[in-house]
Simulated scan of single mutants.
Amino acid sequence: MSVLVFVEIDNGSIKKASQEAIAYGAEVAKMLNASTTVLALGTVEESVLSQAGTFGANKVLHAADPKLTHENSMAFADVVAQAAQKEGSKVIVMAKSGLGDAVAARTAAKLKASVISGVTELPDLNGGFKVKRSIYTGKAFATVDIKSEIKILAIQKNAIEATETGASATVEAFSPTLSDANFVAKVTDVEKSNAELSLSDADIIVSGGRGMKGPENWEPLLDLAKALGAATGCSKPVSDLDWRPHHEHIGQTGIKVAPNLYIACGISGAIQHLAGVNGSKCIVVINKDADAPFFKAADYGIVGDVFDILPRLTKAAEALK
Rank of each mutant, 00 (worst) to 15 (best):
G118C: 02
S114I: 04
A113G: 05
S114P: 03
V103I: 10
A95R: 06
A104Q: 00
T37Q: 02
L68F: 05
G100C: 00
E46M: 06
A75S: 03
Q51S: 12
V103H: 04
G98N: 10
S89A: 14
A40W: 08
D101I: 12
K59L: 07
K110G: 02
L68C: 02
V93H: 02
V103F: 04
H70T: 14
D65V: 11
D101E: 15
F55D: 09
S73F: 09
K30H: 08
I92K: 01
K67D: 11
V103G: 09
N72K: 10
T36S: 15
K96E: 15
A113S: 03
L111P: 08
R106T: 03
V119I: 00
A109I: 09
L68N: 04
K86Q: 11
A102Y: 03
S73I: 15
T120Q: 06
A77Y: 02
V115T: 06
L99I: 08
A34C: 08
M31G: 02
A75Q: 04
V103S: 11
K96D: 12
A81I: 01
E87R: 07
V79K: 10
E46Y: 12
R106K: 11
A105M: 14
S97A: 04
A81E: 05
K67Y: 11
M94I: 01
I116W: 00
D101S: 13
A102F: 00
N33K: 15
E46V: 13
L32S: 07
V91G: 09
A34R: 00
S47F: 05
S89R: 01
G42Q: 07
K96A: 14
M94F: 00
A63C: 06
M74Q: 11
E45R: 15
E87W: 04
D65F: 09
A104H: 05
S50Q: 10
A109G: 12
H70N: 15
A40T: 10
T54H: 04
A64D: 13
I116R: 03
E71N: 14
V44M: 10
E45P: 06
S35Y: 01
L61S: 07
G56Q: 07
F76S: 10
G53F: 06
N58H: 12
G118Y: 01
I116Q: 03
V91S: 08
V119F: 07
T120S: 12
D101N: 13
A63P: 03
A77D: 01
E46K: 13
S73N: 14
A84N: 11
Q51R: 13
M94K: 01
T37C: 05
V60L: 02
I92R: 00
A95L: 12
V48N: 03
G53L: 10
T120A: 09
L32T: 08
K110L: 13
A102T: 09
E45D: 15
L49I: 11
F76N: 09
T54S: 09
V48D: 10
F55Y: 11
L39P: 03
V48R: 00
A34E: 15
A105F: 07
K110E: 02
K86R: 09
K90G: 06
